[in-house]
Design a protein around this nucleic acid. Structure first.
Lengths: 398, 398
DNA sequence: CAGGTTTAGTTCGGACATCGACGAAAAGAG
DNA sequence: CTCTTTTCGTCGATGTCCGAACTAAACCTG
C-alpha cells in the first residue's frame, strides 16, 4: 500500500498563536493599509461586532501603536474617531545596501520617510567596515532629526546576496568576499536594541512594488537589471518566495547559448555577463574606444540601442519565467530602467512573441513605479508587516 | 508622498470561517495524515486541552467522517480508542486523463484504492465523447465493486491542459480541440451528486509526490517528460502554485536555441519538440529507417542514449528553474522515466554543472516514487484535503 | 486476586471571547 | 430645539476553551 500521505498541514499549529493576537494583528494591518479608518468601518470590513472590534483595539491604543484623532465633521451623524498607525510609535531604520552604493532611510509608522540618504558602500571592503559605516550614518541621521535612538523599533537591511532570512545571514554571496555567514543582525543589535531583519535586496524591491498594487496583481515578478540581474518573486497570496536556501530569483547566471562572455561567477554565457547594465556600459566603452563609462554615458543614442538589445535578451529569460510561473505582472527595475522605454519595448517584444498567448493574455509588463526607492519602501513594508504580525504584537505587549 | 501600501492581508478575512470549523478541520487532517491516532495524542500534538479535542471531535464522529475502534492493549494504561478516517464515509472518484490514456480509480478515505483501471482517452475526440466514456466507466466500476453511487463524495479530474481551478474549466488547451471553456464539472454533476474538482494533471502529480514526502522537502518541482514536458510547482508551505491563469508549469514551450524542430504549438525550438519522449520515439523511428515506434522500442540501447541526451537538454531548463525557484527537491516523472537511470544521470550532470553551488548544495534530484500512479494519488490527496477543509466540513455538517 | 500505577477519556465549573441590544455622544436637518 | 443619523461604550447572554476532578480500562506487584 501507499505510504501515508502527509496532508497539507500548516507548518505552525494554529493553536500556537492566540486567536486574540491574530485578530488584533489583522485589525492593525487593516488600519495600517488604510482599508479602514474607524471602528465601525473595521466592523463592516471584518464582519465582527463593533464591540469586539473595540475590545481588540484597546490594547493597540494602549501600547501606542495606533492613534486616534478627531475627524472634522461633514457627514450626518457623530463623526468617527479616525484611526491610524501612530507616527510617534517609533521608527524603522532601513538600509538598502547595494554593491557600490547604499540607500539609508528612517521611516515612521505613518508611511513617511523622516530622512533619506545615499552613501558609498563598496561591499568588497568587507562587512565590518561597511556595516560600521552604516551604523555611524544611522546614528548621525537620528541625531540630525532628533529622533531618540530608543524609539528605534526595528532595523531592516537589504543585501545584494542570498540571505537565510530566518537567521539573517548571507549565504555564499558570489560578489561579497568576507560576508559569507557574517552575523549581520548581531552587528546592529549592539548599537540598537531592536530586532534586525535581513533579506535579499531584490526581494525587498519586489515586496515594495507588490504592496503598491492591488492584491489582484499577484503573483508578481520584479526583475532588476543593474550591475547584476536578479528577480524577486511574490506569490499568489502576497508572500515572498525565498526558496529552500534563500537563493530564489538568482537568474543572473542563467546561461543563454550564443554568447561567450565570461561572467564574474566564472562560468561562460551567463545572461548577466552580457545583458546587465554593467555589461552594456563596458561594451559602450569598448566600442567608443575611449575610457569607458564617462564617454559612453554621453552617447545616449548608442546606449539606447544597447539597452534595447540587452532587454531583448533579458526578455528571452523572462519569457521562460512567464511559462513557468505565469505571473500577473512583471515589474522591471534597476539602473537599466534609466532607458525605460527601450527596456520596456525590448522585453515586451520578446515576451509577447515567445510566450504562449494563454500566459500573456492578461500579463502586464511594466516599469517600476517606485524606481530606486523600491528597496527602501520594500524594507519599510517588511518592517511594518513584521511589527504588526501576531508575533511582533506579542513582543510589544510583553 | 507614496501611495499607501496594501500590507500583506489574507485574501479571505479570518473571521469568515468559524474558529470551530477551522479546529475541526485541523484535527481531522492530523488524524487523516496519521500524525495522531487518539484523542490524547491530538491534544499533545496541538497543545489543546483533551476536553477541547473531545468536544471538536464529536461532530466529526457524528457525521461518520472519523471512525474509532478499540486498540489491542499492550502498553501500560487504558488503551486509546484509535481514530482514523472512516473508510465507509464515502468514496472519491478520480480520473487522471492523459492525451492518449486515462487512469481511473475509486478511493475511499482510508487511503485505499478500491478499484483502478486504465482506459483509452483520445482527447482529440472532444470532451463530450471522452467524458461520457469516463462517466460510463465510473458507473461500471462502482457497480462491479458494489459501491452505491450515493456514497460518492467528490469527483476529481486531471486534464492535460491549463485549468482555471476555481471554475474547473480548461483554458485554451493547446492539444485538446473543443475543450476550451468546456464545463467539465457540470458534465459530472449530472451523473454524480457531488462536487467536482478539475486541475491540470501535472499539478496533481506534483501534489501527490509532495505529500509522500516530509514537508521539509518543499518547495518541490515535479517535472514530467512524456508526450509533452510539463512541470508542477509546490511552494514552501505545501500549496500548489497555479499561476495567474492556471498556466504555471507549462515549460514544454520554453525555447532552447540550437534546435530547429517545429513544435505542435507552431513555434520553433520548443524543448518539447526535440526532448520529449514522443520526440525521442520519433527520432529513434527515423534513425532506424523502419516503421517508427515498434522497431524503435526494441532497440533499448539506442533509446537509452537518446534519453540521456534529451535528459541533458531538459536539465538545461531545469538548471534555470533551480536558479529561479531554488527548490529543495526535483522529482522526475513521466514516461521517460522508463529509462530512469539515464534520465537521472542526464539531468543531474547538467544541473549540478550549470547551477550555482548555493542552489544545488542541498538540492536533491530524484525519480518519482509513485510512478504512473502519481496523478491518481495526487487527485485523491486534493480530494481528501478538500473534504477535510473547513469549507468541506461545513457542507457535510449542513 | 486485591490494590497500586499508568494512560485514556469524560464531566463540569470558571475564565474569557464574542455577540446583540441598549444607551450616550456628537453632529446635521428641519 | 427636537429629530435623525452615525459612532462608540457598556452590559448581560451565549458559547468556547481550559484545567481539575472523576471514571474507565488496562498492566504490575506482591
Amino acid at each position: 500500500m501507499l505510504p501515508w500521505l502527509n496532508l497539507g498541514l500548516p507548518r505552525t499549529t494554529p493553536a500556537q498563536t492566540s486567536h486574540a493576537l491574530n485578530l488584533s494583528s489583522y485589525l492593525a494591518r487593516l488600519v495600517a493599509s488604510g482599508q479602514a479608518t474607524s471602528r465601525s468601518e473595521l466592523a463592516r470590513v471584518t464582519g465582527l461586532a463593533r464591540s469586539t472590534v473595540s475590545e481588540h483595539l484597546a490594547p493597540l491604543l494602549r501600547i501606542g501603536l495606533i492613534a486616534e484623532h478627531e475627524a472634522e465633521a461633514g457627514a450626518r451623524g457623530r463623526p468617527p474617531s479616525v484611526l491610524s498607525l501612530n507616527p510617534q510609535a517609533g521608527v524603522i531604520l532601513v538600509a538598502d545596501i547595494g554593491a557600490a552604493r547604499g540607500r539609508l532611510a528612517i521611516a515612521d509608522f505613518g508611511q513617511h520617510f523622516l530622512a533619506e540618504r545615499s552613501i558609498r558602500t563598496d561591499v568588497a571592503r568587507g562587512p565590518d567596515t561597511v556595516l560600521a559605516e552604516v551604523r555611524a550614518e544611522f546614528l548621525q541621521m537620528l541625531a540630525e532629526h532628533q529622533v531618540p535612538s530608543g524609539s528605534v523599533r526595528l532595523v531592516v537591511v537589504g543585501l545584494p546576496a542570498p540571505v537565510d532570512f530566518a537567521s539573517g545571514v548571507p549565504v555564499r554571496p558570489p560578489i561579497m568576499p568576507g560576508w559569507d555567514n557574517y552575523p549581520v543582525p548581531e552587528s546592529f543589535q549592539e548599537t540598537f536594541a531592536a530586532p534586525v531583519l535581513v533579506d535579499n535586496d531584490v526581494n525587498l524591491m519586489a515586496l515594495g512594488e507588490a504592496r503598491c498594487r492591488p492584491a489582484s496583481q499577484c503573483p508578481l515578478l520584479y526583475v532588476k537589471a543593474s550591475t547584476g540581474i536578479g528577480c524577486g518573486i511574490v506569490t499568489h497570496d502576497g508572500q515572498l518566495h525565498r526558496g529552500a536556501d534563500g537563493a530564489a530569483g538568482d537568474i543572473g547566471h542563467v546561461r543563454v547559448p550564443g554568447h561567450d562572455a565570461v561572467c564574474r561567477c566564472g562560468a561562460v554565457g551567463c545572461i548577466e555577463a552580457f545583458a546587465s547594465y554593467a555589461a552594456i556600459l563596458r561594451k559602450a566603452g569598448a566600442d567608443s574606444g575611449g575610457n569607458a563609462v564617462q564617454s559612453a554615458e554621453a552617447n545616449e543614442a548608442q546606449l539606447s540601442g544597447l539597452v534595447r538589445t540587452a532587454a531583448g535578451e533579458i526578455g528571452e529569460v523572462i519569457a521562460m519565467l512567464v511559462h513557468f510561473f505565469n505571473p500577473a505582472v512583471i515589474v522591471l527595475g534597476g539602473r537599466m530602467t534609466q532607458y525605460g522605454d527601450e527596456m520596456l519595448a525590448g522585453v515586451r517584444s520578446v515576451v509577447y512573441r515567445r510566450a504562449l498567448p494563454l500566459a500573456t493574455r492578461r500579463l502586464s509588463v511594466e516599469l517600476s513605479t517606485l524606481g530606486n526607492r523600491a528597496g527602501t519602501v520594500g524594507a519599510v513594508v517588511l518592517g511594518v508587516e513584521h511589527v504588526l504580525s501576531p508575533q511582533g504584537l506579542r513582543s510589544m505587549m510583553l
